[in-house]
Amino acid sequence: MTEPLHDVRLSVNGVVHQVAVPARRLLSDALRHDLRLTGTHVGCEHGVCGSCTVLVDGRPMRSCLMLAVSASDYEITTVEGLADEDGSLGPVQQAFKECHGLQCGFCTPGFLTTITAGLEENPSPTAEEAREMIAGNLCRCTGYQNIVASVLRAAELKAPQP
């Protein structure tokens, strides 16, 4: 039996793609393998680790807990879409670089998307709020210390210059 394919429109990082996927294709797999946007990583496939977090209409969601066929109505942003318009690193990315906020880099895309949305909601978090902001994402390398520092640094970088 051939599995039927569904034509799905996926709008990712401002680019509209048309893909034909089986109903069961996870959004994470569609992004990674159908669109070849491999920056979104899969660490657990049960929604706990947060590596696969993408922005769905600006809000962080687990792409492993969504089906590609359910994602056609949304604007999706992945790590590949976080750079500034001129191609330089976005503020959250830049902050991670400055603060050594990553080691192996596998969980990093999920943190970057989560923090990007978090700083929209709370542009000047305290250290405690920064810790809360990233509390749904697992990292096995950094012990989170430098990720918290990166959140605070990113807030500085994003703040309008006086």
Binding site: R32, L37, T38, G39, T40, H41, V42, T78, V79, E80, L82, A83, L89, Q93, F96, K97, E98, H100, L102, G105, F106, T108, P109, L112
Partner: peptide, 19 residues
Amino acid sequence: VQRVEDERLLRGQGRYVDD
């Protein structure tokens, strides 16, 4: 010294086996 690895990894341009 800031890491030279990071630029790539932060842009989602890392290349892990499954990629």
